[in-house]
Amino acid sequence: MSYRSTVARQPESLADTLAAAKTELAGMDLTPLASGVTVVTGIGASYAAAVVVAAELQRRGQRAFAVRSGEMMAGYDIADVVIALSHRGRSVETVEALRKLPKAKSLAITNDPESPLAKAAKYHIRLNNGSDATPSSTGYTATLLAAGLAVDAIYGESGTDWASLAAKTTEVQSHAAEKMPRLAEQFRNRRAIDCVGAGAAIGTADGASLLIREAARLAASGYETRHYLHGPMESMDASTGVVVFGDTRELPLAQNLDAIGCPTLLVTSSTAIQDTGKLTVVNVPASDNLILRGVIDIFTAQLLAAELSDAAGLTDVKFRYKQTDTKILDQAA
């Protein structure tokens, strides 16, 4: 399927994953994962998702942090619990991370219960997102949804209305789509695009920058909001663009960028500022649950990546660089 079509079918993908994950969790006791230091790990887009999940664990008072799977391959005993994210469950680095920490209690979230990662973990939750494309859309959001359900199962219900996510997805995608003609005009031909957010939105910013790199082959990077104020934003001007996620310090940051003529997209639940000059605002529903908010925030970035891909003449173009050592092949599983 095409990238745009997989982005569009996320209401169905998320509804299917919700049903599948809830069924599995009903017969599973994850409370042994509730104690100790927790690492959430993944590689590529799965690492971006790991940052979102770790932030929600911290919000809930847990000692948790995200670590790239490649950094765990040395096998240092850094965690009591590992939550491993990989859409297909075949990322070499993430599988090796679990194998190198055999004493840690582990949960894998993949779309294949027979995958190497699922078999390496003590517990497994299956995604049911259907087909995905490059860049990943349904795989990323379904992974976050399943992780959110798992966190509730481990630490107790958060009161999050996961059942309403599919309807919210349709609403947010529709609202964001209305802004895409303006964004396509302002963001085309950028020499670089930065993506910025704080807390869980650091992961969202990282995921957004990866989407832009993969879909449009534009130089894009993710930054934490406060770090961004201490120098990195100085290189941004009318020839670049910035995507900002957040509701607090991110608002004046977006206005600062607009003031110097830098095209800026602000994804926020705040209604304090609106479109002006080079600033485009996409309003999204607020959520105390940072994983739910992470799912909601990425939709606008997915659509922007599609616009930039089309503008660059790269619609659904495959990756140029073929890697031979990043996935465990079926015959070696």
Rank of each mutant, 00 (worst) to 15 (best):
A312K: 10
T110Q: 03
R90Q: 11
G139T: 06
S13W: 04
A200L: 03
L127H: 06
S46M: 10
A121I: 07
T240H: 13
P32A: 01
H175L: 00
W162S: 08
A146R: 11
T264H: 06
P232V: 08
A79S: 13
G27V: 05
L149D: 01
R59F: 12
Y321Q: 09
P263L: 01
L210F: 10
G313I: 09
A48N: 12
V282W: 00
L57M: 10
N283Y: 04
A301Y: 01
V196D: 06
N189M: 02
R88H: 05
V243L: 14
S115E: 04
Q302M: 12
Q323C: 13
I212K: 00
V317T: 15
A97Y: 10
S91C: 03
G61I: 08
D258G: 07
T110P: 03
T315D: 04
D194Y: 03
S270I: 09
A45C: 00
H227Y: 14
D161Y: 01
M180G: 00
D247V: 14
A64Y: 15
L329T: 09
I193M: 10
M1Y: 08
A333R: 14
A177Y: 02
A64L: 15
K119T: 11
P102H: 13
E185M: 09
I154A: 12
L145K: 00
A272N: 06
L57G: 08
A153K: 13
G231N: 11
L183E: 05
T6G: 00
D258R: 11
L304F: 02
R99V: 01
D112R: 05
T23Q: 03
S115M: 03
A272I: 00
G70P: 04
K119N: 03
A311Q: 04
A333G: 08
L149T: 08
K168Y: 08
A55H: 10
A121N: 05
I125H: 09
L251R: 02
Y155H: 02
V244P: 03
K327T: 13
A176M: 07
I43C: 11
D77S: 05
L107M: 08
Y223I: 05
T38C: 15
V242F: 03
R249A: 15
L253E: 10
